[in-house]
Amino acid sequence: MAGHSHDDIDWADRLAQLRMADTLDAGALAPVARRLVGRLPERPVVVDVGCGAGGMSVLFARELARGGGGTVVLVDATPELLAEARRAVSGVAGETVEVVGLTGDLADPGLGGQVPAADLVWASGVVHHVGDQQAALRTLAGLLQPGGVLAIGEGGLEMRCLPWELGVGRPGLEQRLLAARGAWFARMRAGIRGSVAMPYGWPRALREAGLEDVESFGALIDHPMPGSDLLREYVVHRVGWLAGSVGEWLDDDDRAAIAALTDPDGPDFLGKRDDLSLFGAKAIHCGRLR
């Protein structure tokens, strides 16, 4: 499958940003991996659907290696991401953790025939890119062995990076970017082939998929200012990516401000600032197959 997925997003083009996000999120998500893997039997099979650059599977592999081993199955529809994820996870897996890479798409109802029965299925930021989200959850639940756990990362608190006033353009630029992103998201969802409304929250959706012992919890992402070089690079990428996807909802003043803020040769370049931060939260929802 080419870099563009069924939602018309070029995920291969976002590889650098995904790598940076994985690094920045690792400290907050390592306890999530530990919590989920700690509930599993010996030498479990963990399947990461929509693995991206492999950040979460790296954390799963480390936990499996500490506990006697197991198998990590990487699934993604974008070959460039799958290759990067396999490289990253293989680098930490050690001899006791097997790493398997499979090209697959959650929107494919035949996914279950490609993936081994799992003790844990993880899917972060993936389900909302499928037209029928409830059907996608049933597909994910169908990958589980009896007693297995499905955990999804969906929702939470949108990441904030910028000061309210930047010295260029009008104050509140990030808030307007995020509002525009909400409009973009609604149009993206409506434009996916077979899009179906799901007018209820993720915990209920997991119960509708046949899971029990459903719970939700959060992981706080908190990198305070002044931040690292990696954080500054990530913020530049993030602001450019947001502007690229929602530019039509921004006015000329905001577009001009973003151009100045992302120009590495200009006086207002974000990468030169010492007042950037990263603050938000990931929401995790999980349940067990009866």
Rank of each mutant, 00 (worst) to 15 (best):
Q134A: 13
G142E: 11
C161G: 09
E158W: 10
T139A: 15
H129V: 02
W164T: 02
R138G: 08
A141G: 12
H129M: 05
G167R: 01
E158H: 13
G131P: 09
V130T: 09
E154K: 01
W164N: 01
I152W: 05
L157H: 13
A136F: 10
D132M: 11
Q134P: 01
G148Y: 12
W122R: 07
H128I: 06
A135S: 12
G147N: 01
R160P: 01
G142P: 15
E158Q: 08
G125K: 00
H129E: 07
A136Y: 12
V126D: 03
G148V: 04
H129K: 02
I152V: 14
P163S: 15
E154R: 06
G147T: 02
G155Q: 12
W122F: 04
L162C: 03
G148L: 08
A141H: 11
L162S: 00
R138Y: 14
D132T: 13
V149S: 05
G167N: 11
G131M: 10
V121H: 13
T139M: 08
H129R: 11
E165G: 03
L144M: 08
V127S: 08
A136R: 14
V121R: 04
E154T: 03
L144P: 00
V121K: 06
L150R: 07
R138A: 11
H128R: 05
E154V: 01
D132E: 07
H129Y: 09
V126G: 02
L144S: 00
